[in-house]
Simulated assay, not measured.
Amino acid sequence: MKKLLVLFASLFLAGAACFAGDPAEGYWISIDEKTNKPTAGWQIWVENGKLYGKMLSIADYPQDTLTNGGKGRHYENFMNNVDIGTVKTVGATWIWDLKKLEEGKWADGFIIDPGDGKRYKCRIVFHKADGKKYKQDTLEMRGEVGPFGRSQFWKSATKDEASAIR
């Protein structure tokens, strides 16, 4: 009976591991690299094999603020080609269409900077907390134009924490 119970538990755990989400999925807080202060709360998820990201809250602005830039800009596959200048910052899916390279690594998608409405190629890499360089689970979000780019390092959060940035 014990052997049967151990076998059943092992199969259950192995099956659960097969359906576990990618480590990039979850809730994150973007951090300003100059001030080290939170700028926004995010939800990252996988849908139909692609990675997406939605802003849940924003620091230093009313939560119903429209984007600061992008009036008249439209991008293919971004919210049905909506005018960027008419989109509320919180609640919009600013990261879309990233393709999985391997576990925790995504690329070939896009991110829009809500501050100016510009679209960038996007790469995301999950870094597990190691107690050294990464004190907690971290998401490296990199926006790129051609060979040039900039990375931000987002910290893991709960849904409540990511939704509470003000």
Rank of each mutant, 00 (worst) to 15 (best):
S163I: 01
W28P: 02
A40M: 06
E33Y: 09
T89V: 15
D60F: 12
G53F: 08
K135F: 03
I111P: 01
N48P: 02
K118C: 04
S151Q: 02
D160V: 05
G49V: 07
R73M: 13
G131M: 10
G53M: 07
F19V: 15
S151N: 05
G149V: 08
K118D: 08
V125I: 15
D22Y: 09
E102L: 03
F153T: 04
E102A: 12
W106I: 06
K88F: 01
K105E: 07
T158C: 05
N36R: 09
S163A: 13
T138S: 12
S156H: 12
G70C: 10
K34P: 00
A14S: 13
G15I: 09
G26W: 11
R123G: 06
W96C: 00
N48H: 11
K37L: 15
F78P: 03
T93C: 08
I111N: 02
N81M: 11
R150F: 13
V145T: 14
H74V: 12
T86C: 00
E140I: 02
F19S: 09
E47L: 06
C18E: 08
T39D: 08
D64M: 00
G69I: 11
K71R: 11
I84G: 03
Y52T: 04
E25K: 04
L13K: 01
A92S: 14
D130K: 03
D116A: 02
G149E: 08
N77F: 11
Y134T: 03
M79P: 00
G149L: 07
A17I: 10
A157I: 05
L4K: 12
R166I: 09
A92G: 06
D116L: 03
A24H: 04
D97N: 15
I31S: 04
A40T: 13
T39Q: 11
Q63S: 07
G53I: 09
W154G: 03
G146L: 07
L4M: 08
I29T: 10
D108R: 10
F153D: 04
M55G: 01
K88W: 00
E144M: 13
P62D: 10
K71S: 13
L13I: 15
G69K: 07
G104K: 06
A17F: 15
G41F: 05
A14Q: 01
L13D: 05
P114H: 07
L13C: 14
T138K: 05
E161A: 08
Y27D: 03
H74F: 11
P38T: 05
K118M: 10
N48W: 05
K132I: 10
A59I: 11
K155C: 01
A107D: 15
